[in-house]
Design a protein around this nucleic acid. Structure first.
Lengths: 350, 350
DNA sequence: GTTCTCTTTGAAATCGATTTCAGATCTGGG
DNA sequence: CCCAGATCTGAAATCGATTTCAAAGAGAAC
């Protein structure tokens, strides 16, 4: 491997000069040219490990995500990658598997490897602890989920608004017993989406669109907590269908659980849009799902891109006040929420 | 940050002794205990950057994959991660996007960061160049795709056998005009799967199962090359359907293209199993696709796991002869290849 | 008691870059 | 022609670990 010393020798200068050539120090043009030529001839590339050690900061940023198999996060990862590439940082992806210990381990690695910074989609709102990073001055940005009390920039989506819009849409489509399958208790995303759902129901109760049935609390009876995975969606949906008075629509608070819910519905012979289904977050290969699925669209790529930009500012030394950027969701209305009445079949094409 | 020197001072020993305690040198038990206690109290964690610099080798392995959004590769990545975790290595994921330049850049980073080794699913069989790694003694393992002439261990699937089995299955199901949508020319996986398809057709022609129609070469007429992505599958399928004498079944050489093909078929009102569809590699959320899809099952997780194990051996210094491990595929027969005749509908459950 | 061996220890070199500091060179002004 | 100030340059320190080497100490054999 050719080192800076080799280049220096070849160019007849000192290593310090070589370093200056590549890091923008003052060097006479003639010498600089000699150094560059020598470096090119020898195929010199600075050893990043040595650089990191000396500068006390690497050129890699860590991206901790809870589920690499969820396309939402892979898309987010691409956003981060694209933004990072623009400034020569590289991204390493760490899959925490929604597991607090794995997450802690990866945070430790980030510190030990002296990464330039980290972007974290926290495994838990209450347990994820970013303070060791802060203690060592490593910049961090929370994305998608905001861990409690962490003093970091955050890029989030407007979960409450999205949940509200989704539920309102179902109400407008004349569904009246709308269930909500949300994520784990304690995850900020779960709670906020659920809050949106409840807020929409409360409004509907207030203006008479929805009339309370006796017995259960209408804001709670149809709510189920699950785990943001396909299996959890299946279990929750099965449970809802077995109710004495089952729902006629469901708002599922994440894409994978929506897949699970759809599977269960299909197996039970219950099909949208008679039974309304609305997913928070796009489902992959949505084109294959019939009827097509109404979704709350999440700006996953932008989430990642924005987070990376923010992180870069911090790495560059910005000490602006902490920011929280909230990105808006959008509602893509498709066939699965057409309304509970059986509609006339569309005439076949051609 | 607490360094080895701090610990040494706290324990009243030299840094060398502290290092020995953690790296298995000979130290008297009493001292070792003192060192451990001091380290624990100070929360000492060795600085990996310094370690890497000194040892000339890091504790991170790079995994270069061409498409992070293909669940085949994310599953493979998990295999790598699980295997790596067992020996304290961490994995960083690099998405090359089937792009030779991005791939080259990441290989450069792997070298500059002194990674312990790399696992590569090559972006191109002909252009991917692993020789810089070899030149610097960095261990590498090829996975899924074998770059031409690279002197590295490889873990592959038996593509030809899988393609053959798939095509034979379609023939047995009495499809007679079987198309093949394969990947880019030049990718080893494309070529081998296509070769399997052709070999099965040749056998069928030889034993009379299949009779050549006049005009086109039966081994070529129904073959289309595409790009291993959804869009490519769509285009190829559209093209096939527009033929004067369209096929009655298709063997699609990767999962994403199968999704594209299914979309086109659905839009055209052509449905399996009258039109047979067989995908090489599982389709995500297969449960939502109706009719269910017959697939060649790929051991993606095992592929990654095995590759990581192999790499670890090399990192540990093994100089065994180069190995190529070939893992078998399996055929999961489902509804989409039930045969071209319209079958009586199954009686409803219950 | 002396010598020899074996274990344990710490001082110092090392990895490859960056950066400080002080000296050398150059410039322009007086 | 000399000097102040600006500009360049290289020697050496530094980052935090590992590892070599030599010395000190312990123990055994005679």
């Amino acid at each position: 491997m050719t080192t800076i010393t080799d280049v220096a020798r070849a160019a007849g200068v000192s290593p310090a000069t070589v370093s200056r050539v590549f890091n923008g120090g003052r060097v006479t043009p003639e010498r600089a040219a000699r150094v560059r030529r020598a470096a090119a001839e020898l195929g010199f590339e600075p050893n990043r490990v040595a650089q990191s050690l000396r500068k006390q900061r690497g050129s890699v940023i860590g991206l901790l995500i809870p589920d690499i198999e969820n396309p939402f996060f892979t898309s987010l990862a691409r956003g981060v990658e694209d933004a990072a590439q623009q400034t020569g940082l590289s991204v390493v992806l760490c899959n925490t598997d929604e597991d607090i210990d794995k997450e802690r381990r990866y945070l430790g690695i980030a510190l030990a490897e002296q990464m330039a910074g980290v972007i974290v989609a926290a495994a838990s709102r209450t347990q994820t602890d970013l303070s060791p990073l802060a203690a060592r001055g490593m910049p961090a940005v929370a994305v998608d989920r905001r861990p409690r009390g962490a003093l970091v920039d955050a890029v989030l989506v407007d979960n409450q608004y999205g949940g509200e819009a989704a539920t309102e849409h179902l109400l407008r489509a004349r569904y009246r017993r709308i269930a909500c399958v949300t994520g784990p208790e304690g995850a900020s995303t779960s709670e906020e989406r659920l809050a949106g759902y409840r807020s929409a129901l409360r409004d509907a109760l207030a203006d008479g669109t929805l009339t309370p049935e006796d017995g259960d609390d209408p804001l709670t009876a149809y709510v189920r907590y699950a785990d943001f995975k396909v299996g959890g969606g299946r279990a929750a949906m099965t449970d809802l269908l077995s109710m004495e008075r089952p729902p006629d629509a469901v708002f599922v608070a994440n894409n994978l659980m929506a897949v699970g819910a759809l599977e269960v519905l299909r197996e039970a012979g219950v099909t949208p849009p008679e039974f309304g289904v609305l997913s928070f977050g796009g489902v992959p290969w949505a084109g294959l799902v019939r009827p097509s699925l109404t979704t709350v669209e999440l700006p996953s790529y932008e989430l990642g891109f924005t987070a990376a930009k923010l992180l870069q500012e911090r790495i560059a030394g910005s000490d602006k006040a902490l920011q929280t950027v909230v990105l808006r969701t959008g509602l893509s209305v498709r066939d699965s929420t057409g309304g509970p009445e059986r509609l006339p079949a569309p005439s076949p094409p051609g």
